[in-house]
């Protein structure tokens, strides 16, 4: 009995201590990580999607809140006029969340392009979503009235062979952005109009 109690107590105290330590480290590094992610993950994806804009979308960004979640919108301008917004969605993949940047033309409500930012999918299979642009290029030009899902689920997208779950995760992320954009459209328009002036 004594041994039993000591086992429980030691493990509990140890776990509590490690939990506290991790929370402290996480709080301490959060801002730094956010900056690094912006610089190394999001910036390249945004640049690839908004290849012919005249401004720096990383500077022209605004935040909106939806269901207590803060979403960052990056605005692409042509001739000083807001033309597109880019935002990130997430889908559940094989090895965790798959982050997807989606660029949307604010006049035609069509997807300009999408690009995978973060993922922990299997190298060589799921990772092709990021390494091989063929898959994500299927989204380019799709209107927001289309169904963002793989063909088996009644959508428009050909899944990657051997990486069905990753394909679905990318579609899920795109769908999340689609819903978010349509829901927040009035607010997005208000923000972009402010930027035009």
């Amino acid at each position: 009995m004594r041994e039993m109690i000591s086992m429980v107590v030691v493990l509990t105290v140890l776990s509590a201590f490690s939990g506290g330590m991790l929370a402290a480290v996480r709080t301490g590094t959060q801002d730094k990580i956010e900056n690094q992610v912006l610089k190394f993950q999001k910036a390249p994806a945004i640049k690839k999607i908004l290849s012919n804009v005249s401004n720096d979308p990383l500077q022209d960004r605004f935040k909106l809140t939806d269901n207590d979640q803060e979403i960052t919108f990056f605005v692409g301008k042509v001739d000083n006029k807001p033309q597109a917004v880019v935002l990130e969605g997430k889908g559940k993949g094989y090895g965790g969340d798959v982050g997807l940047m989606v660029g949307i033309d604010i006049e035609t409500d069509a997807v300009i392009g999408v690009w995978v930012t973060t993922h922990s999918e299997t190298p060589g299979l799921g990772s092709r979503a990021k390494d091989n642009p063929d898959f994500v290029s299927q989204f380019s030009g799709l209107g927001l009235d289309k169904v963002f899902a793989v063909k088996n689920d009644g959508g428009e997208i050909d899944a990657m062979s051997g990486a069905t779950i990753t394909s679905k995760a990318v579609c899920m992320a795109a769908k999340q952005v689609q819903e978010l954009y349509l829901r927040l459209k009035p607010e997005i328009q208000k923000q972009t109009q402010q930027m035009a002036n």
Partner: peptide
């Protein structure tokens, strides 16, 4: 009896610390 579980908790904690540190300072 629970030493392995304790080792894993300790190791996993430090690994997560390293992971967060690397994300913050050596992201590439």
């Amino acid at each position: 009896k629970v030493r392995i579980a304790c080792f894993i908790v300790i190791i996993a904690t430090f690994v997560t610390v390293v992971e967060l540190m690397m994300q913050a300072y050596t992201y590439p």
